[in-house]
Nucleic acid binder design. Structure first.
Length: 580
RNA sequence: GCGCCCGUAGCUCAGCUGGAUAGAGCAACGGUUUCCUAAACCGUAGGUCAGACGUUCAAAUCGUCUCGGGCGCACCA
């Protein structure tokens, strides 16, 4: 709660019968600057007071205004009357409060200036470990655009939580186990070129995978062979394991390359296979609790009482399933990290799966089961349907990234040919465009992948935000002197400045909300908003001028805005180049 | 069939723990550069907030139903 809201709450508390938190909840920001800085709707009071809300607003405005004038409460500020509130006015059913703009500006700008890179951060997470599971692609397949969402959302949430002081553990839960490895081994044994395996790439593995599915349709025996190989793998067969390790190495090499391009960080790459040794123990304990039973030759946990289909632990051929491994993994992670919260950033098509897994954990007596959250997100698809690795119907992530960087390179050549480090900047902006485009929509919506849309760099885009930041850096460079908070805050009185400053003050609460809702898009929208505010200010007022006092004031605003944009950009996992 | 998610301007989306005239961007049209990066800014045009009923002083926002789209529902992950 900021200072002014606190003041308003304390004023209203005396004159109404409402509780502090009730009042705070009701306080809102008027849609127009001219209507005031904060507003209190009087509809609720009209019920208890049995009077129309506009009458109540008028009466309250009179008594409160009188309080201000008498200066009954002590104010930490010399000017601006009571607590920096200058006027209280009724507009229709609303009680509107005007605050001293200079005081407000001073508070916000000094805070940003003082906290710098830490502005927006907090300490609510101090001493609380959070495990975040994101990206988690399957081995032996290319990373494609539909893999972006988990990786980017997860990475951003990681940064948000870290900003709030949480001790984050980012885990890439590689899909390196399961029947598909049996398929791959079977395919490799049949059609793979052993002599050339040294130079194998994910493309070769993927071709094998595609071929397997084509052939298996004609010849179902192949599926049995694949199952056989997977059973061998699970049993620790040397030959099977050797193939598996090979596939894994090939994949990881490519994954790392792309994660590096995207700037995505993980603290650990621990695949499903890692939990293979624990699975038996997990099943034994589930059985021990009397939760497991055999049904249709498979081992299940019946979730009928909870209106869910059963959770499958073991197939009829004895092989385990991913639910089993997820349960084992969750318990292992709890043991090793003692997390306060565990976040799974996985597509919404797995909603039921996680509901089942969390329920089984709960039934097992893991009282932390409700600290696990599935942060789901909508499907990415093409205009004409779902993306599918199996059908080879994908846009490879690498291709998209390279294309984005190239296009930005051309734009730089066109608009700023004398720029230094063009390649570096093209990378930061091109990749940033892709990141921002993906993070920008609320995660629960399905997104249709549109090449032109992702690679459009005007309007509400990553490059727009980065460009705004670069412009501000440019002004500061030209100014060339140290920025000071010792300025005349009265000079920042234009509407464009006030709106901007108000928004800068909101930043910490945006981060908090993004954490609470696991919603990086809030930060994207916020940045777009701030950049719009800034660009409007920039367009209407010159920062550098002969008027030294005015210049000093505006420079502080420029520097604070630059800082906020940079902090936001970084949390999203993007770079903020100083020139572009 | 059952469950979950989505449906706001031609397109992509904000707004959704109810509140003051429903906001941006793209696309279209018109304008702004002797001036801090025009990747910007301003203006014009564009809306039965899918539809119906209900709750409320007040509904894009909450509830029920209908329609349309997506996803999931036992041996893939």
């Amino acid at each position: 709660m900021n200072y002014f809201i606190k003041a308003i709450v304390s004023l209203l508390k005396e004159k109404t019968n409402l509780q502090e938190d009730e009042i705070e909840k009701l306080i809102e920001i008027p849609p127009d600057l001219k209507m005031g800085d904060y507003a209190f709707p009087c509809y609720n009071l009209s019920k208890t007071l049995k009077k129309p809300p506009n009458i109540i607003a008028t009466e309250l405005s009179k008594t409160l205004q009188a309080t201000i004038n008498e200066n009954l409460l002590e104010s930490p500020f010399k000017k601006g009357g009571l607590s920096g509130i200058t006027e209280i006015k009724a507009i229709g059913p609303y009680l509107n409060f005007f605050v001293d703009k200079a005081i407000f500006s001073e508070m916000v700008l000094k805070k940003v200036s003082k906290e710098r890179d830490r502005y927006g951060s907090g300490n609510i997470g101090l001493g609380k470990p959070v495990v975040i599971d994101y990206s988690s692609p399957n081995i032996a397949k290319h990373l494609a655009v539909h893999h972006l969402r988990s990786a980017l959302i997860g990475n951003a949430i990681y940064n948000v939580y870290k900003t709030l002081g949480y001790q984050c553990v980012g885990i890439n839960h590689l899909g390196d186990w399961g029947t598909q490895f049996g398929q791959l081994i079977a395919a490799y044994k049949k059609w793979g070129n052993e002599n050339a395996h040294e130079s194998y790439t994910v493309t070769d593995l993927n071709n094998l995978y595609v071929k397997f599915h084509q052939e298996a349709e004609k010849n179902p025996v192949l599926e049995d062979e694949a199952r056989e190989w997977f059973k061998k793998l699970e049993a620790g067969d040397t030959e099977a394991k050797e193939f598996w390790q090979r596939f894994k190495d090939i994949s990881l090499k490519e994954f790392h390359k792309i994660y590096d391009m995207l700037g995505i960080h993980f603290d650990a790459f621990i695949g499903e296979s890692f939990y293979n040794t624990m699975v038996e123990d997990t099943i034994a304990r589930i059985k021990g609790k009397g939760l497991a039973k055999v049904s249709e030759q498979a081992l299940i946990v019946d979730l009928e009482p909870y209106n869910m289909p059963p959770c499958l632990l073991r197939k009829k051929d004895d092989a385990t399933l991913y639910a089993t491994r997820d349960i084992a993994a969750a318990e292992y992670r709890k043991k090793t990290h003692d997390f306060d919260k565990m976040i799974y950033v996985v597509g919404s098509e797995q909603k039921l799966h996680f509901k089942q897994v969390f329920k089984v954990l709960e039934l097992m007596g893991d009282d932390w089961a409700n600290h696990c959250v599935h942060v789901d997100f909508g499907l990415m698809k093409f205009k004409d349907g779902k993306m599918s690795t199996r059908k080879g119907k994908v846009v490879l992530l690498e291709d998209l990234l390279i294309d984005a960087v190239e296009r930005i390179g051309k734009i730089i050549e066109e608009k700023n040919p004398s720029l230094e480090n063009k390649d570096v900047v093209a990378n930061e902006v091109g990749i940033g465009a892709v990141i921002f485009a993906d993070l920008c929509t609320k995660r629960n919506k399905d997104v249709v992948f549109d090449w032109d849309e992702v690679l459009n760099f005007e309007g509400e885009t990553g490059p727009y935000v980065q460009y705004t930041h670069a412009r501000l850096c440019s002004i500061l460079r030209k100014y060339g002197k140290p920025v000071t908070t010792d300025i005349n805050y009265e000079l920042l009185s234009e509407d464009e400045a006030i709106i901007l400053i108000k928004n800068l003050g909101r930043f910490p609460s945006v981060i908090l909300k993004a954490a609470e809702l696991y919603e990086p898009s809030l930060i994207c929208n916020y940045l777009i908003d701030v950049c719009g505010n800034l660009n409007r200010f920039y367009n209407a007022h010159r920062v550098l001028s002969d008027d030294e006092e005015l210049t000093k004031s505006r420079i502080l605003l420029v520097d604070a805005t630059r800082q906020v944009i940079k902090n936001g950009i970084n949390i999203l996992g993007m770079h903020a180049p100083e020139q572009m």
